[in-house]
Simulated assay, not measured.
Amino acid sequence: MSFNLVLDAILGERITFYEVECLACGFNEVYYADPHTNKQIGRACQHCDSIQVFDRNLEKKQMVQLDGLP
């Protein structure tokens, strides 16, 4: 399954907020924002196959590890 398809399913509609170096692997970690409110909704590193969703209602974070992605 494509990493972008997984992002679509988990984060939905999004825009790139900014990119930083991933602390785990050194590649780009992308922070995403809601295109309507411009609030951050999550971050993802394609090299690590990880996506972190920021719960906007409860102000808590949930880590989703994606195993087996190409």
Rank of each mutant, 00 (worst) to 15 (best):
1 M>S: 05
1 M>A: 09
1 M>V: 07
2 S>F: 06
3 F>Y: 09
3 F>P: 02
4 N>M: 06
4 N>I: 05
5 L>S: 13
5 L>I: 06
6 V>Q: 14
6 V>H: 12
7 L>R: 13
7 L>A: 09
8 D>T: 03
8 D>I: 02
8 D>G: 03
8 D>C: 02
9 A>W: 08
10 I>S: 01
10 I>N: 04
10 I>L: 14
11 L>R: 07
11 L>V: 01
11 L>D: 03
11 L>M: 11
11 L>F: 03
13 E>L: 09
14 R>E: 04
15 I>C: 10
15 I>A: 12
15 I>R: 13
17 F>E: 14
17 F>W: 11
18 Y>I: 01
18 Y>S: 12
19 E>A: 05
20 V>Y: 00
20 V>T: 03
21 E>G: 05
21 E>R: 10
22 C>Y: 03
23 L>G: 14
24 A>V: 05
24 A>Y: 11
25 C>K: 07
25 C>E: 13
26 G>P: 09
26 G>F: 08
27 F>R: 12
27 F>E: 15
28 N>M: 04
28 N>Y: 02
28 N>G: 00
29 E>K: 13
30 V>H: 06
31 Y>K: 01
32 Y>K: 06
32 Y>Q: 08
32 Y>I: 01
34 D>L: 00
34 D>Q: 03
34 D>E: 03
36 H>N: 14
37 T>E: 04
37 T>W: 02
37 T>S: 14
37 T>V: 01
38 N>W: 07
41 I>Y: 07
41 I>R: 04
42 G>T: 05
43 R>F: 03
44 A>F: 06
46 Q>C: 04
47 H>F: 06
48 C>I: 11
49 D>P: 00
49 D>R: 12
50 S>L: 10
50 S>G: 04
51 I>N: 03
52 Q>L: 07
52 Q>V: 13
52 Q>S: 06
52 Q>H: 02
53 V>A: 12
53 V>N: 10
53 V>Q: 15
53 V>F: 11
55 D>Y: 06
55 D>I: 02
56 R>D: 08
57 N>C: 03
57 N>A: 08
57 N>F: 07
57 N>T: 12
58 L>T: 15
59 E>T: 09
59 E>I: 07
60 K>G: 02
61 K>E: 15
62 Q>H: 05
62 Q>P: 00
62 Q>G: 01
62 Q>Y: 08
63 M>E: 15
64 V>Y: 13
65 Q>D: 10
69 L>I: 15
70 P>V: 07
70 P>E: 15
70 P>G: 08
